[in-house]
């Protein structure tokens, strides 16, 4: 591949997404390059400035095979596309941009995949949007609208999940947690704390709190922490500030998720006015 790119200097530091050529810098992922160029790739577990996670899989893209590195020691990848060998699935948020990559992103087929994944997230948890304070500000809900999702499609799992209302100012309702680990990373990487973690395996995976009692009240989480605000759904909520912005005037009432997703997130501590 390197020989290839030398002969063709135009592709030296650009990738192509849906036919559009996009520059990138060494070390950037496909997502970094796309967002910087104003190209939206749907994402839920990604936030600029935090370590990429690669778990929600909303950002799946297809990369044409000729730019795929053959250095892969996992047996199961070889069996992955027995019939369809000319493109390979990748998570844009974790895949490094490599010169010359031909990437499909905003295609009906990929958006259909993303819709199904969004439905999976809905039926796995307990999302009763009309009764949720986050409605209108929720990225999961906005994603569903963006992808034209009309129902959950799959049978609901109706999992029993714990609510933690112990903290005086912050509420944790695991019913709505999508396991994106944004709060986990925000706490570690920005707040300099380590309030959250994921425990359990498979469908039993769940968010836990790093405190002696396992309750939020005994953790060092504060309202000013990024972790208290970063949740894309209504799982972590600030108490006593409900419905301050009326429904109809909320973030996704006024903007598309594809606009908000392009905004650069500046990760500074969020201070409440009363602090």
């Amino acid at each position: 591949m390197s020989a290839d790119t030398k002969q063709n200097p135009i592709t030296q530091n650009t990738i192509t997404i849906d036919g559009q050529e996009i520059p990138f810098q060494a070390g950037q992922t496909i997502m970094d390059a796309a967002l910087a160029a104003g190209v939206y790739i749907p994402h839920l577990c990604h936030r600029q400035g935090l370590t990429p996670h690669g778990s929600c899989k909303l950002c799946v893209v297809d990369i044409a095979s000729r730019s795929v590195s053959s250095h892969n020691s996992d047996r199961r990848l070889q069996a992955k596309f027995p019939a369809d060998a000319d493109s390979r699935s990748a998570s844009a948020c974790t895949m490094p941009a490599v010169a010359g990559q031909q990437i499909s992103n905003n295609t009906p087929a990929l958006n259909e995949v993303r819709k199904t994944i969004t439905q999976m997230l809905f039926i796995e948890g307990n999302h009763i949007c009309p009764s949720c304070e986050k409605s209108g500000d929720c990225t999961l809900q906005a994603m569903a609208y963006h992808l034209g999702m009309l129902d959950g499609h799959f049978p609901q799992f109706f999992q029993r999940r714990e609510v933690d209302a112990s903290h005086p100012t912050i509420m944790l309702d695991r019913d709505r947690c999508i396991l994106c680990e944004l709060c986990v990373r925000a706490s570690r990487e920005v707040d300099g704390k380590n309030v959250f973690a994921i425990a359990g395996r498979g469908i039993n995976a769940h968010l836990i709190v790093n405190s002696a009692s396992g309750k939020l009240v005994d953790s060092d989480l504060e309202t000013s922490d990024l972790a208290a605000h970063i949740c894309p759904v209504g799982a972590i909520l600030i108490k006593e500030h409900g419905y301050e912005v009326p429904i109809g005037q909320r973030t996704f009432d006024l903007h598309q998720v594809s606009e908000i997703g392009l905004e650069k997130t500046i990760l500074t501590k969020v201070r409440q006015p009363d602090e």
Binding site: S55, C56, M120, I198, G202, I203, A205
Partner: peptide
């Protein structure tokens, strides 16, 4: 597979259980 899925990514975590069901 549903029992052994680690639960990290959505397609496998939810998908293996849906397939099992």
């Amino acid at each position: 597979f549903a029992h052994e899925s680690c639960g990290f990514c959505t397609p496998c975590r939810v998908g293996t259980t849906l397939l099992k069901n």
